[in-house]
Simulated scan of single mutants.
Amino acid sequence: MEELRAGVEDVALVDHHAHGVVPGELDRAGFESLLTESDAPIPGWMTQFDSPLGFAVRRWCAPVLGLEPHASPEEYLAARVSLGVAEVSRRLLAASGAGRFLVDTGLGGGIAELAEASGKPVHEVVRLESVLEDVGRSGVSAAELPARFQEELSRRTAFAVGIKSIIAYRFGFGFDPRPPGSAEVVRAAGSWLRDGAPRVADPVLLRFALWAGVERGLPLQLHAGFGDPDLDLHRCDPLLLTGFLREVAPRGVDVLLLHCYPFHRNAAYLAQVFPHVHFDVGLAINHTGARATAVLAESLELAPFAKVLYSSDAWGLPELHHLGARLWRRGMTEVLSRHVDSGEWALDDALRVARMIGRDNAERVYGLGPGRC
Rank of each mutant, 00 (worst) to 15 (best):
G324R: 02
R265M: 03
L327F: 11
S299V: 03
S342T: 11
I285T: 14
R330N: 13
A267H: 02
A284H: 07
F279G: 04
G343A: 05
L327C: 06
V340M: 11
A268S: 10
H278T: 06
I285D: 02
I285N: 08
P262M: 01
R338Y: 12
T293L: 06
L270R: 03
A284R: 05
G316K: 03
T333R: 07
L317Q: 00
R329D: 08
D313I: 05
A267N: 05
R291F: 13
H278C: 11
F305G: 07
E298Q: 14
L302Y: 09
V281G: 07
A350N: 08
A297G: 12
D348K: 09
L300S: 02
V273G: 01
R329L: 06
E298C: 05
V308K: 04
L320H: 00
G282R: 01
S299D: 03
V340Y: 03
Q272N: 14
G282T: 02
A303V: 03
V340C: 09
P318Y: 00
W345A: 10
A268C: 07
M332D: 05
W328G: 05
T293N: 08
F274P: 11
D349T: 15
H278Q: 07
H339R: 15
A297P: 12
N266Q: 14
L302T: 15
A294H: 12
S337V: 10
T288S: 14
G282W: 00
A267M: 06
P262G: 00
H264C: 11
R329Q: 14
E344T: 15
T333L: 08
H264D: 09
E319K: 04
G289R: 00
A292Q: 03
L309V: 10
A297I: 06
